[in-house]
């Protein structure tokens, strides 16, 4: 499964905005509430949710789980040349975030001063618009993160 932000972008590139809405809807739990899953056998959390535990395979027991809303930046980059759909937001920061349960998320960083965006910075989830294909299609909402410390 791809990282969620790439899925957002992929959605925006679709030919028919009306066909995108059902695809987006199936992702609402992970985009709105960071719902991933957790293997009760190896005790590892996954985000986005995995169809099968990569550690335990068929012996694994996955349950749906809401991920913690806070984490820290593991790595980040500043995007000056954005993919389609994000032109008006550039330049912006993208970061790999390790959540408090060790699951990792790729997310845009918003509302944070440049000097505070660094490896190890504590971040918190916020709810934002991710994009819209045009003024007629549905608006995509989801998670972004902001630095809190």
């Amino acid at each position: 499964m791809q990282q969620p932000l790439l899925l957002f972008i992929g959605d925006l590139r679709g030919d028919s905005m009306h066909n995108i809405a059902p695809l987006n809807w199936r992702k609402f739990p992970e985009r709105y509430l960071l719902k991933g899953n957790y293997c009760e056998v190896c005790k590892q959390a996954f985000f986005p949710p995995r169809p099968i535990c990569p550690n335990c395979r068929r012996k694994g027991k996955l349950i749906q789980m809401e991920m913690p809303r806070q984490g820290k930046i593991l790595s980040y980059t500043k995007v000056h040349v954005p993919p389609e759909g994000f032109k008006n937001e550039a330049p912006y920061y993208l970061a790999v975030i390790e959540l408090e349960n060790k699951a990792k998320v790729l997310s845009q960083i918003v509302d944070s001063e440049q000097e505070k965006i660094k490896i190890g910075a504590k971040v918190k989830k916020v709810f934002r618009q991710i994009g819209e294909p045009d003024k007629y299609g549905t608006i995509t909402y989801g998670y972004k993160f902001k630095v809190i410390q």
């Binding site: 008006n88 937001e89 918003v110 509302d111 916020v126 709810f127 934002r128 618009q129 991710i130 608006i139 909402y141 972004k144």
Partner: peptide, 12 residues
């Protein structure tokens, strides 16, 4: 911000 609207404000 450019990525905020009345809905995101309401949720926050």
């Amino acid at each position: 911000s450019i990525d905020e609207d009345a809905c995101t404000l309401a949720v926050e």
